[in-house]
Structures are given as C-alpha cells and as structure tokens.
C-alpha cells in the first residue's frame, strides 16, 4: 500500500531537486529561446482566451443574455439588413482598443459574479434591473462620444442627401455641430427599453 506512494514521492523529489539546481547542462541560448517560446505560448493562449470572450457566442452562452437581449436584437436592423452586415454584441459593447479591452474584461468579471449570485437570472429580475444596466451603457457611450457606433458609422462618410429628411435635418442640426451624440437620440436601437420615465428626451 505504501510502496507506490513512496515511489511517486521519490520521483517528485528528484524532479524538484533537479529543477532547483542551477542549470549546469543548459546553455544560455537554450534558456533564452525556451523562455521566449514559453512567453509566446502564454501570450498566445491569453490572446485566444480574450478572443473567445469577444464573440457573440460567448455573450449569449449566459441565458441572461440569450433569453433577453439577444432575442430582442433579432428583429432589429443590426441583426439583419439589406447590406448583410451584422453588428454583434462586442461590436457595440466592447471597445476595439486593446487597453480599453482589458479594462472592460476586468469589469466583466463583475458579471460572472452576478451570474453566480443570480442578480438577473429570470426575465422578471432582468426587467427589474434593466434601468440600472441600460444606464451604465448610456453613460459609457455618452462619455466616449458613442465610440462603438462610430467604429461602423462615421459622420465623414455619412451622405445626408441619401437620408430621409427627418434624419438629415436631425443630423445636420445636432450631430455635425457636436451638440449631441448618437446615443442621445438612438436609445433602444438594439433592445427593448427599460422604464423611460425621467430619462431626458422621453415623455
């Protein structure tokens, strides 16, 4: 009964003590290259993990997201349109900028926390929290001048002569003058809205 355990322990001990000795037989060159390769592998893995968390598939894997905001996105223009360009969750919700991305990921761990403790795991709970969550997104888009919208829609490339009168007039008066930003006028573009009483511009 004790022998296999002793053998295992012996093996572990030998590996540990050899790893703990200075590298007599390994050249400096090997160490540098090895370190470099390990670094690349680590960074690559980190990157792949981040890449995955940047997909619609990942966001929707939480039923909180799938059963609520995702089904609401489907009938809108950002899911299906004549141009065939689809805006996915991370297009509107995670900045493409690398450093911003990491800081957003740190905030995302708060969501994992929320998942564990079930703050919004039913439609009713989600509706009750919706005003608060939408508020976070409005504040963020207001603060970054609707950066995510502008990654796809730029005012420079906007041909207002091709727009409806209503759109052209609004954009000319308030957008091009910098008085307002996209999210001021286009709330609820992708999902159903929360209770809008008290939100500026809503009656």
């Amino acid at each position: 009964m004790l022998t296999p355990f002793k053998k295992l322990w012996g093996l572990v001990y030998r590996i540990w003590s050899s790893a703990n000795r200075p590298a007599k037989h390994l050249s400096i060159g090997f160490l540098t290259i090895g370190g470099f390769v390990a670094g690349v592998m680590f960074w690559g893995g980190f990157n792949t993990a981040l890449e995955y968390t940047n997909t619609e598939e990942f966001c929707v894997s939480c039923h909180e997201m799938g059963d609520n905001v995702f089904v609401e996105l489907k009938p809108t223009i950002h899911y299906s349109n004549r141009s065939g360009v689809r805006a996915t969750c991370p297009d509107c919700h995670v900045p493409h900028n690398w450093t911003d991305k990491i800081s957003r990921k740190m905030q995302a761990s708060k969501e994992v926390w929320g998942k564990l403790f079930g703050t919004i795991n039913t439609r009713e709970k989600f509706q009750a929290e919706r005003r608060r969550l939408a508020g976070h997104e409005w504040d963020r888009l207001k603060a970054n001048n609707s950066l995510e919208c502008r990654n796809c829609h730029s005012t420079e490339s906007m041909d207002i002569t091709a727009q409806s009168t209503r759109a052209a007039e609004a954009h000319q008066t308030f957008l091009f003058t910098g008085e307002k930003t996209c999210i001021d006028c286009h709330k609820g573009i992708a999902h159903e809205l929360p209770d809008m009483t008290g939100v500026e511009g809503w009656k």
Partner: peptide
Amino acid sequence: RSYEISLNANK
C-alpha cells in the same frame, strides 16, 4: 420600424 410603444416607453 422598431419604434417601441409599451408600458416602458413611447418612442
């Protein structure tokens, strides 16, 4: 299209 009229909001 997508103009919401509901308990929550009237676009």
